[in-house]
Design a protein around this nucleic acid. Sequence first.
DNA 1: TTCCTCACGC
DNA 2: GACGTACGTGAGGAAT
Length: 878
Amino acid sequence: MSNKLVLIDGNSIIYRAFFALPLLNNDKGVYTNAVYGFTTMLLRILEEQKPTHMLVAFDAGKTTFRHSTYKEYKGGRQKTPPELSEQFPLVKELLDKFNIKHYQLDQYEADDIIGTLAKQGNEQQWDVSVISGDKDLLQLVSDSVTVNVTKKGISDVEAYTPSYLLEKMEITPEQIIDLKALMGDSSDNIPGVPGVGEKTATKLLKQFKTLEEVYEHVEEVSGKKLKDKLINHKEDAFMSKELATINRTSPIEISLEDLVYTGYHPNQVSTIFKDLGFQSLLERIGVEGESEEEKAELEALDFSIVDEVSKNMFTGEDALVIEMLVDNYHKTPIEGIGLVNHSGAYFIPTEVAAASKEFKTWAEESSNKKVVFDAKKTLVALLKHDIHLKGINFDMLLASYLLNPSENNHDIPAIGHRFGKKGILFDEEVYGKGAKMKVPEESVLADHIVRKTNVLFELQAEMEKQLEDNEQLELLKELEMPLALILGEMEHTGVQVDIDRLEEMGSELKERLDEIEQRIYEIAGERFNLNSPKQLGPILFEKLKLPVIKKTKTGYSTAADVLEQLENEHEIIPKILLYRQLGKLQSTYIEGLLKVVDKQTSKIHTRFNQALTQTGRLSSIDPNLQNIPIRLEEGRKIRQAFVPAKKDWIMFAADYSQIELRVLAHIANDEKLISAFKNDLDIHTQTAMDVFHVEKDEVTSNMRRQAKAVNFGIVYGISDYGLSQNLGITRKEAKRFIDRYFESYPGVKQYMEDIVQEAKHKGYVTTLMKRRRYLPEITSRNFNLRSFAERTAMNTPIQGSAADIIKKAMIDLHEKLLDEKLQARILLQVHDELIIEAPKEDVDSLKEIVPAMMENTVELNVPLKVDYAYGSSWFDAK
DNA sequence: TTCCTCACGC
DNA sequence: GACGTACGTGAGGAAT
């Protein structure tokens, strides 16, 4: 088998990579973009070329033998940026891990090392491949030496063989040197002959073959000016030739045999990849058995697998982890339980804990403090085993969320890594993912769970300290943690669903949908997949020749706002809109809800995600009960299926009226806005009066609609563009509305300006209850990123404070219902409203209690106002 | 699986 | 003047 030698021009590739890629850095703040680019290139070469011998050559230092010929050689170059310099040692370290030789030689450049070895390889008739970003190296091309030059960026190379070179540049490899001699090279400061560029040089070489020949026959050169220049700069030309010539007999101290390459060990490489933060490359090197390997590296952790729980395992300050493999803890079995405290670490198999009286006693005693990860999940999971967990003292999930909501991974291993705890694997590494996910054998499972519990135990103090520094400890302990328990109860209680009612609506819908669908096919003259915008687009805009209003990345847009503009153009449009509307009801709400109803109890148990949104709001999943239709009557009927769990009970719904705008009035301390709310005016009408400068009775419904959209925009932090889309007006008009709004409410304008400054100064904004949102992009030079951050700075204190308020109201109300010994219970929260179920006879009490608790939970300089209603279903509570 | 488009709520 | 524009969840189709 013939040998394959790969020679890489290290400097050239690293420079290319550095300038081609954005300035990435890893979690330690080390710049890695050039290393990353170099590594991707390296991996590709290893895969594609399968070298038997390999070397990466580097330039040695400032001066080379060429400087004695011409001291200006490479003069005028920009200094290498420090962000790049620091990456060279990293590349060399990386090469060591790959078992790839690298070499540099004093007074010589990488080119010369490569030239010398390429020549040796050529003589041995090896297959030689050179990789560089520099076309100078093309002089090395021969039948057995291929030179690969990176094209723009580093992702692609162009392989030069003698014939390709001839085709592309119309010259031979040897002539590359002559070409350089004539045209020079500004990047290396090689002078060449002034006025001779690539075109002229190529022409001359085609005619005379070599530089020497050119000068021997210089009289035959056509064009007087060119001739004169050649004659006048003869010395420059020959010096340039000398400079451009790669030395193929450098005094290197290595031989071809030293370059033997036998492959790398993925584990050795994976360590440095992890240090550098090259997660995406780990897979590429096939670190499959990573969990096994990694585990071997983890320090052993002592723990016992418990077969009987005993009192003396507990200290009264214990970390507890309830492990489940699937996120839906309402219907997922517990895989095992971890317990760590000052005196020991334990793995308790689920059935051992479930059967243990000792465990239940410990768990239910509130004076036993528990450190947990995700109090709500822990609580709900144990409730299913009839264990009522009390005494939760710290919730790491919520703590991590409060410290930085923009962190999107809050599981224990991720938090552990962020806080420098390395002795832990990610769940995915232990359990696998997707179809390959499975429970490992008990010893592996137990080890992983105990490690997690250990991280939890060890990090509590540090995280509390950080929260304390941020003045957020109260937010955690007095707001989010108590709320978690209430949410847990709400989820566990669930909402009763009238399945028959849903199915009835479903079959009605099905009939109507079938009918509309058939009618649409008739009008279109063909059958197609109506749910596919990709298929619908051509039908509407090609076959029926409707005007194209908007395009998406993949074709014509058929979104509702587009179709609405075409409503009167063709009879098919309203039918499609109706089909979409009803189809949504059918698939998401009827079928979707039926899928998640507990067949035994006919109840739905959503999960409120308390550690997700950037503003502090909750979200609801599996199913989402925060987006049940209400705007259109047809959809609103879905709410008829949400009913009280018990006979003679009612649904009671209470919602804050304009809570965000009231919060804005308070935070901005805007006199006009405050007085509008103090006088309990219709805020949209008031805004219309102020923006359009009209009296109350002159406000038309259209003016009010526009004013409402402006208020909406203020609350949600949308841009002039967003407002223009909302109102179907131009961006300029939208901007005028916003300007007028600010003229009317100078306090609001001042607040908006101040909060942006504050965000720039501190790097974050806060809410009423000290929730934080970091906005690093507020200082970005990118207009979009910065604008977005600015709008976020304005909006988050408003939305976030409103979220704080309703959260506190839930705690107050929950406590009050207990105090009053009412059976009423909160079922759902939908951002500004609470859904409660209660016995009929509690209604009078609720009418008093609920608004009172919600309105008085905080005191602002405007009143909070709560509206309420009740009835025999959620639909009727309107 | 993952991405895109669409649609529902606040 | 560019850029791509409140936050969420979920369904279905299409490309991988």
